[in-house]
Amino acid sequence: MFKRLMMVALLVIAPLSAATAADQTNPYKLMDEAAQKTFDRLKNEQPQIRANPDYLRTIVDQELLPYVQVKYAGALVLGQYYKSATPAQREAYFAAFREYLKQAYGQALAMYHGQTYQIAPEQPLGDKTIVPIRVTIIDPNGRPPVRLDFQWRKNSQTGNWQAYDMIAEGVSMITTKQNEWGTLLRTKGIDGLTAQLKSISQQKITLEEKK
């Protein structure tokens, strides 16, 4: 169930391209415009997507990853294993993690069937560096609404905000991946996880038929 919630949630996290980005210092504006741009692209490019579902990787690479804190999220997933990894191991892992996100997020976007969304009203940021933004996803086919909290983090150097995690039903996506990959990290280390991520990233994206 959580895996499905995570995939549905990713439908609204794909941010804007650099040329049309919203105010990078306001995570609420980023979330709002990102959702609108993403849904528009999914709707307008269905012919290309249906002809070649792996085209979704391109959308992810162009529109999402430049505005997601990939390395920060990847380091959180590694936890204690990050500090013990060599620079070469980290570089290989982050490259594999990025390719994994292209496949995983692309597969999530393949679930698009006309969903709509509501974003919580903007709250004062103050001096906060981590801000959760509640998004409610509404399914046109009558499924119950899904309420999610996207975690946005302020870059201490640039002042810009980027998304790095999502919490559904009190469970963090980062925590879920830590639990899912924990045994592999304990037995085969970061190299074993890197190899698995490379394998997963090679899987073809498949479209979910409308139910």
Rank of each mutant, 00 (worst) to 15 (best):
G114Q: 04
N155H: 11
K3M: 04
Y100S: 03
Y82T: 00
N155Q: 11
P47K: 09
S156Q: 03
Y55V: 03
T206H: 11
I137M: 15
V68L: 04
R90M: 15
K204F: 15
A95M: 04
I200V: 08
F150T: 09
R57V: 02
A110F: 02
K211I: 00
T183L: 10
L184W: 08
Q107T: 11
M31S: 08
Q24K: 14
A9D: 00
V146N: 13
T175N: 06
G182R: 09
P87Y: 15
Q36N: 10
A75N: 04
T158R: 08
P144D: 09
K210P: 11
A120L: 07
Q151M: 07
A88W: 12
T206R: 10
K37S: 05
P87N: 14
R147N: 03
N26C: 00
L76A: 14
L193P: 13
A35E: 05
D40P: 10
A163R: 05
P15A: 10
K177E: 09
V77I: 01
L10T: 15
L197E: 11
K210M: 04
E169Q: 14
Q46K: 14
V68S: 11
K71D: 14
T38L: 08
K210T: 05
Q115T: 11
Y28R: 06
G142E: 14
A96W: 01
L184P: 12
K188P: 09
A22G: 11
A120Q: 03
L78P: 08
T116Q: 06
K71P: 03
I119R: 05
W161A: 15
I190L: 06
E208H: 13
R4A: 01
W181A: 09
I138L: 13
L184E: 06
I167L: 12
Y67T: 03
N44T: 01
V146P: 09
A22H: 00
I130H: 10
K177Y: 12
A51R: 08
Y67S: 12
I49S: 05
L101H: 10
A120I: 02
W181C: 15
D191V: 08
D32W: 07
A35C: 01
Y100I: 01
P140R: 11
T187P: 06
D54L: 00
Q69N: 02
Y81D: 00
F2P: 04
Y72E: 10
R57M: 08
V77Y: 07
T194M: 02
W161K: 12
T58K: 12
I205M: 01
K71H: 12
Q202Y: 15
L76Q: 08
I59V: 11
P87M: 01
M111K: 03
F150Y: 06
I137E: 00
K37V: 04
Y55H: 02
Q202F: 15
A51T: 00
I138M: 06
K3P: 07
P140D: 12
K29S: 08
L65G: 07
P121R: 02
Y112W: 08
P87W: 14
Y100A: 11
Q157L: 06
N44P: 10
Q103N: 00
T129M: 03
Y105H: 11
Y81C: 13
Q69R: 04
G170D: 13
R147F: 07
T136P: 08
Q178P: 03
A14T: 04
P132Y: 03
A92K: 03
Q162W: 05
F2H: 06
K128T: 15
L109V: 11
S156R: 08
S17K: 02
A92R: 10
V70I: 15
K3Q: 09
R90Y: 01
L5G: 06
Y72I: 01
Y81F: 11
L10A: 03
A104W: 10
V131R: 09
V135F: 04
K210C: 01
Q69E: 13
M1T: 10
K198N: 09
R50E: 05
R57S: 02
R57K: 07
L193W: 12
R186E: 02
P47L: 10
T136E: 09
Y105C: 15
R186V: 12
Q46S: 05
A9Q: 01
Q151T: 06
Y112C: 07
Q123D: 09
D139E: 09
A195W: 03
T116A: 08
P53M: 14
K128C: 07
M31Q: 02
K177R: 10
Q162Y: 06
V60C: 13
K83Y: 06
G74D: 09
Y82M: 03
S156A: 02
D191M: 01
R90K: 00
E33Q: 15
D61H: 01
M173I: 14
Q36M: 08
N160I: 01
P124H: 02
G79D: 02
N52E: 13
Q89T: 10
D165V: 07
A35P: 09
R153Q: 08
T206K: 02
P87G: 08
K211V: 14
A73V: 14
D40T: 15
L30W: 04
N141P: 08
D139L: 06
Q24D: 06
D23H: 06
Q115E: 05
G114H: 13
I167D: 10
A73Q: 14
M111V: 12
L65F: 04
A85H: 06
R186M: 13
A120V: 05
Y82N: 00
G114S: 11
E45H: 11
R153F: 05
F39T: 10
D139K: 05
E45P: 05
N44A: 08
V135R: 08
I167Y: 01
T58W: 07
L11T: 11
Q69W: 02
F150V: 03
R143W: 06
K3G: 07
Y67I: 02
Y55Q: 00
E122M: 00
W152S: 06
T183S: 10
P27V: 10
V12T: 01
A51L: 10
E33S: 08
P121Y: 02
K188E: 12
P27M: 03
L64I: 14
D61F: 00
Q24I: 00
W161R: 10
V146L: 07
A22S: 04
I49D: 06
K37F: 04
V135T: 11
I205C: 12
L109T: 14
K29C: 10
K211R: 12
G106H: 01
T38M: 05
T187A: 04
Y81A: 07
Y93L: 06
D139W: 14
K71E: 06
I13H: 01
I138S: 09
T38C: 09
I13Y: 09
T183V: 08
K198Y: 00
S201N: 00
K204T: 11
T129F: 11
L109Y: 00
Q162H: 12
D54A: 00
Q103I: 09
S172E: 10
D40W: 04
L148Q: 02
K29G: 06
D23K: 03
E169P: 10
I13Q: 14
Q46W: 08
K188W: 10
A120F: 03
L101T: 12
L184T: 01
Q123W: 12
E208C: 13
S199V: 03
P47I: 05
P121V: 08
D165C: 04
L125D: 15
I119P: 06
S84R: 02
L65T: 02
